[in-house]
Amino acid sequence: MPYTNEEGGLLNNFAREPKVYQAEPPTEGQKRTYIFLGIAAIVLVGGLIGVAFFVSSIS
């Protein structure tokens, strides 16, 4: 672990920094997957809201 000495003899312990890398833009296949997952999430949330509304209106 990397330690540094400060004035007065105090030691500071710093966390190890992760390796830095440049992000790559998504490929066409990944873009299609993101669109599909977004549509599936919208349908799921819409269905849950519809079920909740239906169940709450039953008396």
Rank of each mutant, 00 (worst) to 15 (best):
G46Y: 02
L37D: 12
I49C: 04
Y3H: 07
V55W: 14
I39T: 10
L11C: 09
K19Q: 08
P26V: 11
K19A: 12
E17K: 15
A40K: 04
Q22K: 05
T33A: 12
V55M: 08
F53H: 11
I42V: 15
I35E: 12
G8M: 02
Y21K: 10
Q22C: 00
I58Y: 15
E24I: 09
I42D: 04
V43T: 00
E24A: 10
G50E: 11
V20M: 07
R32Q: 12
R32F: 06
R16S: 11
Q22F: 01
L44S: 05
Y3T: 10
I35F: 11
A15Q: 06
S57M: 14
V51N: 06
G8F: 02
G8Q: 01
A52R: 02
F14A: 12
N13K: 14
L48W: 04
L48T: 05
A41M: 03
L44D: 01
E17N: 08
K19D: 05
G47Q: 01
A15T: 03
A23H: 06
N5D: 08
Y3F: 09
N13C: 15
E7P: 01
V45C: 06
P26H: 10
V55T: 11
A40Q: 03
I39R: 07
L44N: 03
E7D: 06
E24F: 03
K19N: 07
Q22D: 02
Y21H: 09
F53W: 15
L10N: 01
K31V: 14
L48S: 04
Q30T: 06
S56N: 14
I39P: 00
N5V: 11
G8V: 00
L10V: 03
